[in-house]
Amino acid sequence: MSLPDEPERRGFSRRAFIKGASVAAVTSAGVAAANLAQAPQEPKSFAIGEHEVELKINGQQRKLKVETRTTLLDALRDRLDLTGAKKICDRGACGGCTVHVDGHAVNSCMMLAIDAIGSEVTTIESLTQGEQVHPLVQNFATCDAMQCGFCTPGMVMSSLACLQRRGKPTREQVQHDLSGNICRCGTYGRIFEAVERTAEGATK
């Protein structure tokens, strides 16, 4: 199968890396290196142990205590009670913990919280404003693109990245962009439909 063009990813997932032979992995690692090269950040070093840090999450500056080894996922869930992102594999293999970091879909279990300092982190929670939900969320519900729903927030965030990058993705592109997300209940087909409905502008 020919690969649709590879979305830029900030960082790379352990899964894609271990896939090894896949073209996607090579490209995404390459892009990551390029990104880092053009945006050198103020190097800040942390001694091993706990630190109070500030992260920008869903547009808000949040103060929290993390250890240097604490993942962004654990920080979001256990320190800030943002429990939409799920820890399913903790190894970059399932996409259940997907959040956006500076606009790119990232497995938050594969990123340290301290590495998110200075970045914009966006979580599934940002797609709800009062009673209003993002059309993509609505379309997931309309298409019944879920069963147990445990993979769903991660699927929504990966789908959102797909839509933001591609506008009107083809079916093959949707399949490709969601290939890092596992759904055990088997809801893929209806997820594709929800993404396509959203691309077509459906909001109900």
Binding site: T128, A141, G149, T152, P153, V156
Partner: peptide
């Protein structure tokens, strides 16, 4: 509970 699940709530 579709919206609840899809919105992460």
């Amino acid at each position: 509970d579709g919206v609840m699940k899809a919105s992460g709530r």
